[in-house]
Amino acid sequence: MAAGGDHGSPDSYRSPLASRYASPEMCFVFSDRYKFRTWRQLWLWLAEAEQTLGLPITDEQIQEMKSNLENIDFKMAAEEEKRLRHDVMAHVHTFGHCCPKAAGIIHLGATSCYVGDNTDLIILRNALDLLLPKLARVISRLADFAKERASLPTLGFTHFQPAQLTTVGKRCCLWIQDLCMDLQNLKRVRDDLRFRGVKGTTGTQASFLQLFEGDDHKVEQLDKMVTEKAGFKRAFIITGQTYTRKVDIEVLSVLASLGASVHKICTDIRLLANLKEMEEPFEKQQIGSSAMPYKRNPMRSERCCSLARHLMTLVMDPLQTASVQWFERTLDDSANRRICLAEAFLTADTILNTLQNISEGLVVYPKVIERRIRQELPFMATENIIMAMVKAGGSRQDCHEKIRVLSQQAASVVKQEGGDNDLIERIQVDAYFSPIHSQLDHLLDPSSFTGRASQQVQRFLEEEVYPLLKPYESVMKVKAELCL
């Protein structure tokens, strides 16, 4: 049975990233139509530049190519590739079939990587351009969430054990800070992308030097003109047959890092959902379990974690691919890159769409948070109580021993009897502590235990987050809708 299948058929496997999760716009960027249309555009740009620099290419040939950029006979191309065992030459023939007058000058002087690699770089750039505003929107939604809850005390956790208090907004800023680093890295790697350009079979530009009869300047002009037509500021000066596969490492490393950030955020949300302090959106008709109707599973956060793990592992592909590119190139890269580049971007696209949807509907339960604080705060307040007693004339050592005994009794009630923490009640009825009984409410005010959390939130948002989001103001209103 021949390899390949009808990918629109229910009898043929289709990647869930495309069929179930990723956005239509990201799927289109990695589609065959987008790819092969870009090949034709690159052939047109090459012909236009070659004509401008004096090669015998007519206006009629150029116009014929322009008129057929979208006229792609995919069936013919597939048949040609089956016959020739070469995808680029299959599309040269297919393009030439609908451009008979231009057929002889299509791909003039070029090698397969002229269309293959340059198209990949265009796709990487455009895919990054799709991700950047999506990530900015996630940051914006979380920034709104953090600002609104900047002063809401909550129990902090280290080692997932109760620690000092923080605020809900401050905790959210930990998430935002990681995503801001990801946004900066995505922008950097996007701006650092260079075009492969017009380089020939081993990167020496020998074929173009021959076409222009040894004119170095025209060869350099050709490279520059096509690079500018493709919208790049610069091209690699040095290439082998391909652009260095280190570029793929750079791009997928940034995406993998984004995956790590999203995994951490969504894990926190899942843990908070278990504590009943916070939940992701839950639709009115949504079913959490087929057997347990009360369940409210954090399905979206779980999906993000599941896909983020996949995204983090994909960076190993370009690392290994770059390491086995012998001399000017081997074909070890080809099949692998067809999979890992598309999957990385479709996965990143999915987790950003999902995280935006989550961040637009996060639900906080202040009463649950308050109750958990009441359970733990008495123990945390013991040092403040000791200091207040010393100020009232008591002995630190005597007070410490009193607190120690009462704390152990209260802990026994919590752990052995399943009761509430009654340390404060014990202190309130103990005559030894009568000098500070009137101060206990103040000493137990949760806001006095959150330090500068709310001020940190305000400063972080104003100095770091809002300036970073400013270039994306025009796209901030787009909502994230999930079908599944």
Rank of each mutant, 00 (worst) to 15 (best):
G4A: 13
G8Y: 12
S9T: 09
S9I: 14
P10C: 12
S12P: 01
Y13R: 12
P16Q: 15
A18Y: 15
S19R: 01
R20A: 08
S23D: 11
S23G: 07
P24Y: 12
Y34L: 06
L42S: 07
L42V: 09
E50P: 00
T52I: 03
T52L: 03
L53F: 05
L53P: 00
E70P: 04
I72V: 06
D73P: 14
A78R: 07
E80A: 14
K82A: 08
R85A: 02
D87S: 09
V88F: 14
V88Q: 11
M89N: 06
H93K: 10
P100V: 15
G104A: 11
C113H: 03
D117Q: 00
T119K: 00
L124Q: 05
A127T: 05
L128R: 03
L128P: 00
S140M: 14
D144N: 11
F145V: 08
F145L: 06
A146E: 00
T154N: 08
T154D: 13
H159E: 09
H159V: 01
T166H: 04
R171W: 05
C172L: 08
I176S: 05
D178G: 12
L183Y: 10
Q184F: 13
Q184L: 08
R188M: 09
V189C: 15
D191A: 11
D191L: 07
D192M: 15
L193W: 10
L193C: 11
G197R: 02
V198M: 15
G200F: 03
T201Y: 04
F208E: 01
F212D: 08
H217K: 09
K218S: 07
L222C: 08
K224G: 11
E228Q: 03
G231D: 13
I237G: 10
T242N: 15
K246R: 07
K246V: 03
V251P: 02
S253L: 09
S261Q: 02
H263L: 04
K264T: 03
I265R: 02
C266F: 09
T267M: 15
I269E: 01
I269T: 14
N274T: 14
N274K: 02
E277A: 01
E279Q: 11
E280C: 08
P281L: 11
F282R: 02
E283T: 15
Q286F: 00
Y294E: 03
R296T: 11
N297T: 08
S301E: 09
E302Q: 00
C304G: 11
M312V: 09
T313L: 10
D317H: 07
Q320C: 04
Q320V: 10
Q320A: 06
T321A: 03
F327G: 08
A344P: 10
F345A: 08
L346W: 09
L346Y: 12
I351L: 10
L355H: 06
L362A: 13
Y365R: 10
Y365G: 07
K367A: 12
K367P: 08
K367C: 08
R371V: 01
I373A: 08
L377T: 02
N384K: 06
M387D: 05
A388M: 04
A392P: 03
R396C: 04
E401K: 14
K402H: 03
V405S: 07
L406W: 06
Q408F: 12
E417Q: 07
N421M: 04
R426Q: 13
I427Q: 00
I427L: 15
Y432D: 04
P435M: 04
S438C: 09
Q439K: 04
P446D: 02
F449A: 06
F449N: 05
Q458T: 14
E463R: 12
